[in-house]
């Protein structure tokens, strides 16, 4: 990689000198102006809200082009080293990077319609932290290019404790419900997936066909220790008692930018 050249050891340089394979040339004017690119207003509010994927990918194309290595340095073959969640039938195809999994694989294209700015809401290239300079936006999450709350919407914990009738994690109780999520969700949380980065109908179809698809996101790939506080809908009359404690602070509307 050229970009590592500053750290090449003197031996490497010496070898280059010996082999004479350093290309001649005046680098002036050919060097892309990375400084200007990384401070392009497209990276910040408000321009980022209107950024087209094509504009982002103009520079960052590699996030969709790059694939994982076919094998790790120690020789682990990518195709043979699947995580348990990748053996699930909701998981298809070869090993892919997370960007491709969310944007270009067939499952992603069928169920979701993520755009770059669905997740990326700005990023301070000076320090990857909000508030390092006077003129950048203040609502960035320290050290992350994406607010993890967005990931949490799908990758939160399967919180059976707030789900009426469930006595344990889904894998333990699925039998009781015939392995079928929709058994109950015909009644509860009937307004689902009405967000602009999801293909609502396709998701519902997939869920009706096989509840594993539901669990694939809602708990199956729960990277986080907490659940997402899903929007509270008007409480069903058949539910007993008053509004439960856990539901009191929940929002009643989704963030506007996800519902437009």
């Amino acid at each position: 990689m050229k970009c590592r050249s500053a750290l090449i050891l003197c031996i490497y340089v010496a070898l280059l000198l010996l082999s004479g394979n350093i290309v001649a040339g005046n680098t002036e004017d050919k060097t892309p102006d990375y400084l200007s690119a990384r401070w392009n207003p497209l990276h910040f509010k408000p321009a980022i809200d209107y950024a087209l994927d094509a504009q982002c990918l103009g520079c960052h194309q590699e996030v969709l082009q790059r694939k994982p290595l076919s094998q790790s340095p120690a020789g682990i073959k990518s195709s043979e080293s699947l995580a348990w969640y990748q053996k699930d039938e909701t998981y298809q195809g070869e090993q892919e990077t997370f960007h491709r999994r969310h944007m270009v694989t067939s499952t992603a294209k069928r169920l979701m319609k993520f755009k770059c700015n669905t997740c990326h809401q700005g990023h301070d290239p000076k320090d990857e932290a909000s508030g390092t300079t006077d003129t950048t936006q203040k609502d960035l999450v320290l050290r992350k290019a994406v607010n993890p709350d967005i990931c949490l919407m799908c990758h939160g914990k399967f919180d059976y404790k707030v789900m009426a009738g469930l006595t344990g994690d889904w894998p333990e109780v699925a039998d009781t419900f015939n392995g079928d999520c929709v058994t109950c969700h015909k009644e509860f949380r009937t307004k689902r997936h009405k967000l602009n980065f999801l293909n609502e109908q396709e998701i519902e179809k997939a869920g009706e066909k096989d509840s594993n698809t539901c669990y694939g996101c809602h708990g199956g790939r729960a990277w986080y220790a907490i659940a997402y506080p899903y929007v509270r809908r008007p409480w069903l009359k058949r539910m007993p008692g008053a509004l439960p404690e856990w539901a009191k602070d929940r929002p009643t509307e989704y963030t506007k930018r996800f519902t437009k």
Partner: peptide, 19 residues
């Protein structure tokens, strides 16, 4: 992390809330 076992899928990078 044993990076010799890594295939560079970058999922962990995305999942970590702290970068």
């Amino acid at each position: 992390i044993d990076s010799t076992l890594c295939i560079g899928c970058r999922r962990c990078e995305a999942a970590c809330p702290y970068g």
